Computed example of a mutant assay.
Amino acid sequence: MNAFHDVRFPLAISFGATGGPERRNEIVQLVSGREKRNARQALARRHYDAGTGLRSLDDVHEVLAFFEARRGSLHGFRFRDPFDMKSCRPSETPTEHDQTIGTGDGVTERFALVKTYGEGQEAVRRPITHPVADAVLVAVDGVLKETSLDYAVDGETGELVFQPGAVPAVGAVVTAGFVFDVPVRFDIERLSVSLSAFRAGQIPSIPLVEILA
């Protein structure tokens, strides 16, 4: 049975990877010459190539071992996107005020982490399901909360779970800052690496694709 392995792809290699979000849109040109455009999926799906992060034969060996342990594309895993891994800009340090997560109603205990891109009605709210638990900061109405005492991070869903007595009151704004990983799988069934080619600078392709919930 396929599953998600809560392990992270080697960081040193991921920071040399290439890739980013992909949008799937349908564009139809009408007889008038105008275009009709429709989004085929609500959220972007991220694709990466980890091959560009390989720097040595030891790196190749590490990826081969990781590939085998995941049974190729069968099991998912965590991947640190070198371009988008924080609730803030890459050059900044996350704070508890970075992202608005929701508004309390005095009853709701669970709040899903999101990262917002853009502003107003055109903004996109991306679900963050694999935060780094010990790097999550939370505030309610601007007041920093304490992990364990006030809330916990659900290891399965990535949601914030407020403890009894700390549930956000009606109208209270919940904000958060975090570092996160992207759930991915190998988008390939076979790794093919030639020693002579690698030594000559020909990097193999190791495609990864985001697993959407």
Rank of each mutant, 00 (worst) to 15 (best):
M1T: 14
A3D: 10
H5V: 08
H5W: 10
R8P: 01
R8N: 05
L11K: 10
F15W: 11
A17H: 07
T18A: 11
G19W: 09
G19T: 08
E22M: 08
E22Q: 09
E22Y: 08
R24F: 12
E26G: 07
E26L: 09
I27N: 15
S32L: 05
G33V: 13
K36W: 15
A39C: 12
R40N: 12
A42I: 13
R46Y: 12
D49W: 00
G51A: 03
L54P: 03
V60F: 02
E62F: 09
L64A: 14
A65D: 11
F66W: 04
E68M: 13
R70W: 03
R71L: 02
H75V: 00
H75Y: 00
G76F: 03
G76W: 00
F79S: 03
D84I: 01
D84S: 03
K86R: 14
C88L: 07
E92P: 02
T93P: 07
P94V: 10
P94W: 14
E96I: 10
E96P: 07
H97L: 14
H97E: 13
Q99S: 12
I101T: 11
I101R: 13
T103K: 08
G106A: 02
V107S: 07
V107L: 03
R110L: 05
F111H: 01
L113D: 02
V114L: 04
K115F: 02
T116A: 03
E119W: 13
G120K: 14
E122H: 05
E122C: 02
E122P: 01
A123Q: 11
V124A: 10
P127S: 06
H130L: 06
V132Y: 04
L137K: 14
V138S: 01
A139W: 07
A139Q: 07
K145V: 01
Y151E: 08
A152E: 07
D154K: 09
V161T: 00
F162S: 02
F162A: 06
Q163H: 10
G165F: 04
A166P: 06
A166F: 09
A169C: 08
V170E: 14
V170R: 15
V173H: 06
V174P: 00
T175Y: 07
A176D: 04
G177Y: 05
P183C: 06
R185N: 15
I188R: 12
E189A: 11
R190W: 08
L191Q: 14
V193Y: 13
L195M: 13
L195N: 12
F198W: 08
G201S: 09
I203A: 11
S205E: 14
S205V: 11
I206R: 12
I206M: 13
I206W: 15
I206P: 11
I206V: 15
P207E: 03
L208W: 12
V209H: 10
E210L: 15
L212P: 04
